[in-house]
Amino acid sequence: MWTTTDFIIFQKTFFSVLVPIIIIIGTVGSILNVIVFSVSKKLRSSSCSLYLIFASITYAVYLNTVALLRLLQVSYNIDPASQWLWFCKLRYYSVGILLMLPRSYMLLAAIDRYFMSKSRQHRFLSYRIALKMIVLTFFFWLIVCVHFVIFYNIKISSNGTNYVCSNPPGSYSTFLSFYSILINGISIPLLMTIFGLLTLHNLKHYRNQIHNNFIILVQRRKKEEWSILRMILIQLIVNVILSLPVTIYLFYNGLTQYVEKSSLRNFIENYIYNMFTLLPYINAAASFYVYSLTSRTFRKELCYLTIHFSTSIKQSIIYHSRALFTHSFTP
């Protein structure tokens, strides 16, 4: 039978193997997302692609900061946040922002698809408006997440053996529980679902009103919109499934903060929380693979760009090789 030491060793080994893999495949996937959505002629024409580009960028930043720091903390007992107060506050401030930014950009993408399904001429559907919304969303979460800077502090852990960076018990812990469940668990997923269903309704309405003179144009429009909308909706489902366990745990932790817990219960809860933190990292790394599996248009554009760039690189290598060969044998 395993002891607590065996469980700790297993968790450290598990983190040290899995988290680097998640960071690598997630970063590569985010880079490919940015390339496809910014270079593809079919996809870059949509203002929605701009939201997906910035969502991919923030996911990559999240993986290479938050996930990396968690790896150092769990696997190697390296935690600067427990030593420096400024780092403690900055870390959780960054976590709060980087958790919400990609979800907010996905929500904006869903809203973009909704307006697109109503009218191509809507003023919301432009790169200029999209950039403004992206910047405003960034500053919005910069302001909203200030509470992490104010309240997070370094304190003695529950077992009394070391220092940890954590939120104080009491009213703020209760607030954080409701903040987590309302913002992360309910509001943004609910809004994305509403706009997704409204968009589907509008697309169905278009299908029922097709006229012979416009059948090709409307079918093409519906196909393109559905391709991007399907990516967003499935990404939403993945997001909710993988984010919900951590959200529920934080809500539970806030509600049970005044309950006297044994050392074994504290160990089990912390152990479960550490394992749950892997799920948001997987979610951050999943977008490219979700898009690839759910959108034929995305796959076709990815294959086209892969062939195009590989051909260009091959031709460049051949050209320089010939130039070098010619130069070497020229007297």
Results as ranks from 00 to 15, higher is better:
109 A>T: 07
76 Y>T: 03
137 T>P: 03
180 S>F: 03
202 N>I: 12
79 D>H: 08
130 A>M: 11
141 W>C: 08
209 Q>V: 00
160 G>Q: 08
134 I>E: 06
207 R>H: 09
71 L>E: 08
149 V>Y: 01
169 P>H: 13
177 S>P: 12
182 L>H: 05
163 Y>R: 15
135 V>G: 00
169 P>W: 04
70 R>D: 15
75 S>M: 14
143 I>Q: 01
80 P>N: 13
196 G>H: 03
160 G>T: 06
78 I>Q: 07
112 D>M: 05
96 G>R: 02
199 T>K: 04
68 L>K: 12
133 M>I: 05
165 C>M: 09
115 F>N: 10
130 A>F: 11
195 F>G: 02
127 Y>G: 09
205 H>Y: 11
105 Y>F: 15
207 R>C: 07
70 R>E: 15
155 K>F: 02
81 A>H: 02
190 L>P: 01
74 V>K: 01
178 F>M: 11
206 Y>T: 02
78 I>E: 05
122 H>D: 12
178 F>V: 09
65 T>N: 07
163 Y>W: 10
139 F>G: 02
178 F>G: 06
69 L>D: 06
81 A>D: 01
145 C>A: 11
97 I>N: 03
107 L>I: 01
160 G>H: 12
166 S>N: 08
178 F>P: 04
166 S>D: 15
79 D>T: 15
156 I>F: 11
125 L>R: 15
99 L>F: 08
139 F>D: 01
132 K>R: 15
157 S>D: 15
95 V>S: 05
129 I>A: 08
110 A>V: 14
96 G>T: 02
130 A>N: 05
137 T>I: 10
129 I>N: 14
150 I>E: 03
159 N>E: 08
130 A>R: 04
84 W>E: 09
115 F>A: 07
171 S>R: 10
194 I>M: 14
131 L>V: 13
97 I>Q: 04
153 N>T: 12
74 V>F: 07
86 W>R: 02
160 G>I: 10
124 F>P: 04
90 L>H: 03
96 G>Y: 01
137 T>A: 14
166 S>H: 09
109 A>H: 03
117 S>I: 09
155 K>A: 13
161 T>Q: 12
79 D>Q: 14
71 L>Y: 11
122 H>I: 04
141 W>S: 07
146 V>W: 12
92 Y>R: 00
161 T>C: 02
179 Y>S: 05
128 R>G: 06
200 L>V: 10
158 S>G: 10
140 F>K: 07
74 V>H: 00
101 L>Y: 01
98 L>A: 01
81 A>Q: 03
